[in-house]
Design a protein around this nucleic acid. Structure first.
Lengths: 233, 233
DNA sequence: GAGGGTGAGCAGCAGGATTCGCATCGCGTA
DNA sequence: TACGCGATGCGAATCCTGCTGCTCACCCTC
């Protein structure tokens, strides 16, 4: 595989310098972008593997950029740089769909550790899921069909398929409704009710579960979201 | 790291002048605010590292401001300026959660000494705690999860997580119940029973301790409060 | 050592807030 | 018209949180 590419969006020149040097030294291909307003264009132009995004930027701020990036690149790995002490920034960042954050001032070691961890996680996600085995039924994800072992099944809508695929890719981890909206719906999902997710989970359950009232495949984790039950061995 | 930022809230122009000059001279970035009514907004807008707050202000007084600031920025370092002789103001200030106070009239040297001391203390508290290792279990403060090394664990409520974080940040020092109410609960916590703290400590213990009846992690220091046991080497 | 006073541990409870599930409706498109 | 999709509203379940009242442990004084 080609060299991993990282785009650094940071206005402060010395800090940017430090970031770029540290990442280059670690073997990454690094692009830099000093302005928040250009960030989206640069993301589209370079399509990096990971985006390192400062929260405090002149012009468009980090959260706005994150939102736009998520709309067009739902899968992109994003690490945010937040100021020390700004607790709520971190929460906001993570809720907004960042994969991790690093607190300024940071050590190069920590930065690299976080970046590597995020990249590893995003690499681990299987992207070529075609088939999903759930107890006694099989879902053909590219065809959007559920087939039961004992005969026929249902067909899934496009959205349902994408939702199920995302849950499958993150199998065993509860996925937040907001994250689902971000990653599955994409686009203008931020202005949607999160309850829309519930509806689709319900519809999925009706097609997948043996007893939709007592789900065993798509579990709800109170306060966290939904989770596809881990594969039983 | 960027310059340390201090917000000075003081109505008397000459005194404010003196404060600002002294602090600037010492190398701090200083913002000033002449009115008590704007103070909160300025705090939110500039998010300073330290707030220097006069008690006697036209409009909203220093204590009211302190209370509001504590509600939204429980970690912020606050030094109060009190008039000479107003003993009870100092007590009230410290009980209200100020970190220190300076008595007017003051010398620049004394002011700087106090400011530096408070900043040093608050710098010692790592604010970007994400993970807490307690003997054989790990607490993920971001997610509010306790996981035992040998399998599953519990999830912590929001309040529990904040409480534990505060104890962790002040690890090894017994923390007063009143201080906990101020810093963890924030807001209108002063009209609460301090026993509410006990309750939550108990609940934390039940989730954290191997034997909740004989705590080894969250220790009670009689007459002082609670303390997170210092890291064993 | 006895006794009183204070602080802390410990259920249990109840109000309130969240969160979920579900039924239903309306809208737009094929 | 059928279908997919999102919004809305309601009820139920669940959780969080602080209070009350009791007991127990500790400390101090006598």
């Amino acid at each position: 595989m080609a060299q991993t590419k990282i785009l650094v969006v940071e206005d402060d020149a010395p800090i940017r310098r430090g970031l770029v040097d540290a990442l280059r030294f670690a073997g990454y291909a690094v692009e830099e972008c000093p302005s928040g307003d250009d960030a989206i264009d640069r993301v589209c132009a370079t399509s990096p593997d990971l985006l390192l995004l400062d929260v405090l930027l002149p012009g468009k701020d980090g959260f706005a950029i994150l939102e736009e990036v998520r709309a067009s690149h739902p899968q992109m790995a994003v690490v945010m740089l937040t100021a020390r002490g700004a607790e709520e920034d971190r929460v906001r960042g993570l809720k907004g769909g960042a994969d991790d954050y690093v607190v300024k001032p940071f050590s190069a070691t920590e930065l690299l550790a976080r970046v590597e961890a995020v990249l590893r996680r995003s690499a681990e996600r299987p992207t070529d899921l075609r088939e999903l085995k759930l107890s006694d039924r099989t879902v053909q994800l590219e065809l959007g069909r559920v087939s039961l072992d004992d005969g026929d099944g249902h067909s899934l809508s496009d959205l349902e398929t994408r939702l199920l695929r995302y849950l499958a890719v993150n199998r065993g981890r509860p996925v937040d409704r907001r994250e689902l909206l971000q990653r599955v719906w994409g686009g203008n999902a931020h202005e949607m009710e999160t309850r829309a997710v519930d509806m689709h989970v319900r519809r999925l359950r009706e097609k997948l579960e043996r007893d939709a009232a007592n789900p065993t495949l798509i579990l709800t984790v109170r306060g966290k979201g939904y989770m596809l039950a881990p594969e039983s061995p």
